[in-house]
């Protein structure tokens, strides 16, 4: 059972990092889209939602083009920082982050838009700085919606397959996450291992979804 637990550990690590990255990026972009008025805002929203509808393999292909060994960014990373992202777990984190991104910024935007602007004004008149208003009023009131999005993103990152396989490959113990390991086990005819992996994955996703549903009743159940 050793490989199954290694794969679970790797999946949790990748999903954890992807969620953390989206906590900053997804919530930040959600806030920006909710509050800033600029031309092309809806176009940007649509563009950023693309990872939700594009096939993960297509995203993986784009990522290879963007950060692959022959790309401009990939060359720069290798030559100046000595970093290579392809076929590494860090590459899997980038793939999972992008796939899960819309699941965070969309609910975050909705949650920020639902915060009563009058409460923020009340805090301003009381002399609280703009940063204080965000952390003491806006964020606490939007937090439930954001947390539900983060849990969905975590579950989605746990289950990521296509883009991860394209970018990080399937190196056991290094980049072979649970969902990739299931595919490999079935291909190799290891049915017992596949069954164990599937069970672990399903349990992990059920736990995450249950917590998400509890945090935002209705919002997720109705989807």
């Amino acid at each position: 059972m050793e490989p199954a637990w290694t794969a679970l550990g790797l999946s949790l690590k990748v999903a954890g990092w992807a969620t953390l990255i989206n906590l900053v990026l997804g919530v930040g972009v959600g806030y920006l889209l909710a509050r800033a008025r600029f031309p092309g805002r809806d176009v940007l929203d649509t563009f950023l939602t693309l990872p939700m509808v594009l096939p993960p393999t297509v995203l993986g292909y784009y990522l290879l083009v963007a950060i692959g060994r022959k790309s401009w960014l990939g060359t720069w990373l290798r030559e100046s920082l000595g970093v290579n992202l392809i076929f590494t777990w860090q590459g899997a984190v980038i793939a999972a982050s992008i796939v899960a991104f819309p699941l965070v910024f969309k609910p975050a935007r909705a949650a920020f838009e639902a915060v009563d602007g009058q409460l923020e004004q009340a805090a301003r008149v009381l002399g609280v700085s703009e940063v204080g208003v965000f952390f003491r009023v806006t964020l606490p009131l939007a937090w439930r919606g954001i947390l539900a999005g983060l849990l969905l993103a975590f579950a989605r990152a746990m289950g990521e397959f296509g883009a991860t396989l394209m970018v990080a490959g399937s190196i056991p113990g290094k980049t072979q996450t649970l969902s990739v390991a299931v595919y490999e086990a079935v291909q190799a005819g290891q049915d017992d291992l596949a069954a164990t992996l599937v069970l672990i994955t399903s349990m992990a996703c059920v736990v995450v979804l249950l917590s998400a549903g509890r945090l935002a009743p209705g919002r997720i159940a109705n989807r």
């Binding site: 409460l119 004004q121 008149v125 002399g127 700085s129």
Partner: peptide, 20 residues
């Protein structure tokens, strides 16, 4: 001057108490 620097208090019609 931003509202923070004006030193006045504002009572909103429905009071705008922080619900959390």
């Amino acid at each position: 001057l931003p509202p923070q620097a004006r030193g006045v208090a504002y009572l909103f019609q429905d009071y705008a108490l922080f619900p959390h």
